[in-house]
Structures are given as structure tokens and as C-alpha cells.
Computed example of a mutant assay.
Amino acid sequence: MEKIVDHIDHAVWLSSPENLSANVEMLEVMANTKLVRFEREDMGFIMYISWAAGIELVCPMEHPTEFNEMLRAQLAKRGEGLMGVVFGVNSLDGHAKRLASEGVAVGPLMDDHVDSPWHQDLKLQERLAGEVMNSWFILGDIDYKPGTINFVDAKNPHDSHLPHSKLKKFVNHVDHVVWLSRPENLEANVAKIEQLSGVKLERCDRSDLGVVLYLSWEAGLEVIAPFGEETEYNVQLNLGLQFLGEGILGVVYGVDHIEDQEPRLKAVGQELGIELLDDPNSPWRHKLLVRERTGPIVMNGSFMFGDVRYPEGMVKFQGSVNSESVDSVSA
């Protein structure tokens, strides 16, 4: 079996019942994947999921349950959008025990239903660790059938600044998740994510964009906050804070070639946005290769595309097997 450890396993969107079909269709187009439906009658919600892509969409069913009342409360509070993340851990009990010792109450165990269409392909246990920036932070101990997740070999371009010869990347899977914080809450929000994940985030001030970033590439966690003078980039972040408040801004979805996504997006009236370049002075510049482009807004969240190449071992993907290499970063 294979498993993602100390890294985002998958992202979770929340849909209202009346928009469910349209939201499923849009996520399938964005991620170039098929979401499989399963109804959890016992918990009162419908789920659509692609474990291969790291994408889950949930929607409350009509009959009330304790769980779907939580979903309805979230819809009433923030509307549709990115509701939370599932963070992969090696030992659910061990992680929960550490959090409990720090005064963080971890929720009850949630496991897979025996009748789910994927029950034979994985072993799953999850527990809600708490909320951060109006989103759920869920711990997941998930073992996948080999080959489910496409974490593959990637070439190091001849003009690369990295000395590493072996690189890996996510293809057609969520690479990392981005939260949007108010500047005055930034340090507290980062500290909360660090506590829940057990991972340290590194700071980078991007005065050219008018933002402060905290990131752990190793864990797939990013927090961003606008600061300083108004820029073309941070004005959009300020609008997001004004209308939606703090929360998950979006996901960066790992792909083979970013520009290859354009024809598929244009077919549904969408397009790729601006390219976000790494700062040459960032504290992680020596660690990895990064290319990202913004994408469409899906359920109040940004769906971005990334070609992110990690030195082998930087991301903990246990039991991974080498796959066919992908091409070098293209311009």
C-alpha cells in the first residue's frame, strides 16, 4: 500500500444540493478526472470523490443528522466552497495524542463505509482536528492501493539551479492548499496550522506582489496575507477578505504541463490566468522548482495549476514506485 504522510492528502469542497450536479461537472473539468458518487445515508451526506486526484465534494442530504447539520451550518456561514483539508499522517492515534496533550480536542473516528465503491482499494481513518480560518482541518491515515496516486519522476532541466538529480512531482493530484489570512491574524493563524499539522512553515515577504507568504512545500501548506501598498495582485486578496473573510483561498493542482490545460478550460469558457513566479530570494529557492498559473474560480475558490518538482524524499510518499518520467519545465 501507498500513503501520503505529513502532507495534504486531499481537499474538500462543500456544495449546496441545488448546485451539486453543476459543481461536480466543473470540478471534473478542472481536474480532468471523474468523481465517483457515494451516499452516506448513515451520516446524511452525498460525496463525490477522486482519490487519485485528491478531490472530494460533499453535500448534505435532506434528512437531518448530526453530521449534515454541521455541513448546513457551514453553508449558512460561508456558502459553497473549499470547506477543509485532509492532512495525511503516519499514526492517527499518535498525532491525536500529541494534540490532546496541547489542549486540542480531536473529534471521533470516521472510517470508510463497507459499501463504498472504493472500499477494496484503500484503508481509511479520519478525525477532525479542529477549525482554522473558517475551515476544517482533518487528520487522515489513508493507505492506497499502489498506483492510485500519480507521484512520478520528473526531469531536472539542464539550466536548473538545483543540484539534485532525482526529482518527483504530483501529476493530476492536489499539490498544495492556500489559506487567505487577515494581516492582523497572520501569526496566530500560522501558529494554529503548525500546531494541527506538526509542521513548521517558512516566511517569505513578497513586496513585489504586496503579500506575505508562509509555506511548507514538504507538507503542501501555504498561508498568504496582503500587506503594504496596493498591487494588482493583493487588491484581489483584499476583496476576498472583504466579502468572504478568512478561509481557504484555493488549491494548486499538480499537472504535467500547465499550458496543456488551456484547451480543456477554453471548451467550458474558462482560461488560465497569470503566471506566479518564485522569488529568487525565497528561503525555499534552493529546495525545488516551481511554476504556477492562476485558474478559474470554482465555488468561491481559486483552482490553480502547478508544475512543482521536489527532490526525492522531500515529500513523504511511502511505498511509492518510480513511474514514467515527465518532461522538463516548459516556458
Rank of each mutant, 00 (worst) to 15 (best):
I4W: 02
V5N: 02
P17R: 12
L27K: 06
D42A: 10
M47W: 03
A52I: 05
A53M: 12
L57A: 07
C59Y: 10
H63Y: 13
P64Y: 00
M70I: 08
M83Q: 09
V86E: 12
N90D: 14
L92G: 05
V114C: 05
L124C: 12
R127V: 02
A129F: 06
S135L: 03
G147T: 11
I149T: 11
N150V: 04
N150D: 10
F151K: 05
V152Y: 04
A154P: 11
P157V: 09
D159G: 08
S165Y: 11
V171A: 12
V171N: 12
D175E: 12
W179T: 07
L180G: 02
S197Y: 05
G198M: 05
K200R: 07
R206L: 00
W217H: 15
A219W: 03
I224A: 15
A225M: 05
E229D: 13
Y233W: 11
N238T: 04
Q242R: 08
G245Y: 08
L249C: 04
Y253I: 06
G254C: 12
I258V: 11
D260Y: 02
P283Y: 13
W284T: 03
R285Y: 13
V290T: 10
E292T: 15
G301F: 02
M304V: 11
G313Q: 04
G319E: 12
S320T: 06
S330W: 01
